[in-house]
């Protein structure tokens, strides 16, 4: 479904992505694991068109999207959750949900969103940023579901959340997958990654250095944790 071929990108002088190639199949949940500064966020921003890829190609559904502006990538089914969750303070919870256009036939209705995430229904009139961190993350993912995006690109949804909330995010990601939405997420927590995802890419210094399945992650958890410096 998503094919990244030899993408390079730079921030000023520094080359952050040194030629990343990876693929995500329809219905899969795939994580990008790697240290801070390995280029994971930049890669996600490149996929969304928020950061310019210098070379290489990005294909979505067999079609190159590398030259499309962000709003058009969104409209063909890419749903983005940035690392700060991207909740608008000047919009209510409900407005945060309904701001993006519906982009796919599988789009959730507001009722469906509220049924699945009752806390959002309770707080629908409040400013988006009045929610707790975990609730904001929930809102950001719910927004992608309401759009009917076909792939969820989430930049470290569990960052800074308490263990109980991390589990909750795990539940939400399983819900997302159960509804047929493909997921590509950045994750530092390898244990958590192995409980929600099918496959993992280990990113280091702007490259994919390894592709791992869950069994390998479990076997090598200590080694990976040490490598990630956690």
């Amino acid at each position: 479904m998503l094919n990244v071929d030899n993408v390079t990108a730079r921030y000023g002088e520094a080359q952050v992505l040194q030629g990343v190639s990876l693929g995500v199949d329809t219905g899969e949940v795939v994580t990008l694991v790697g240290r801070n500064g390995a280029g994971k966020t930049t890669l996600l921003r490149c996929l969304m068109g928020l950061h310019r890829a210098m070379t290489g190609d990005i294909e979505f559904d067999g079609r190159s999207v590398a030259t499309l502006p962000p709003h058009k990538r969104c409209r063909i089914g890419l749903g983005y959750v940035p690392d700060d969750r991207g909740i608008f303070a000047s919009l209510s919870v409900e407005e945060n949900l309904t701001l993006p256009p519906v982009t796919g036939p599988e789009a959730w209705s507001l009722e469906q969103v509220y049924e699945t995430f009752p806390v959002l229904a309770e707080r629908r009139r409040q400013a988006g940023t009045h929610l707790s961190g975990g609730e904001q993350q929930m809102l950001a993912i719910a927004r992608v579901l309401r759009m009917g995006a076909r792939i969820l690109l989430a930049d470290e949804p569990t960052e800074g959340l308490a263990p109980l909330l991390v589990q909750q995010i795990g539940e939400i990601i399983r819900t997302v997958k159960a509804h047929g939405v493909t997921v590509l997420l950045i994750e530092q927590n390898v244990h958590f990654a192995s409980t929600v995802a099918d496959r993992h890419y280990l990113i280091a210094q702007g490259r994919v250095v390894e592709s791992l399945d869950n069994a390998e992650v479990e076997q090598r958890e200590h080694e990976l944790l040490e490598y990630l410096g956690i």
Binding site: P69, H71, L99
Partner: peptide, 18 residues
């Protein structure tokens, strides 16, 4: 709503299909 969102964070609004 679009004006408020764009005023607050233009790039994010753009990545949400607007």
């Amino acid at each position: 709503m679009i004006v408020r969102a764009s005023t607050e964070r233009a790039e994010l609004t753009q990545s949400l299909g607007i």
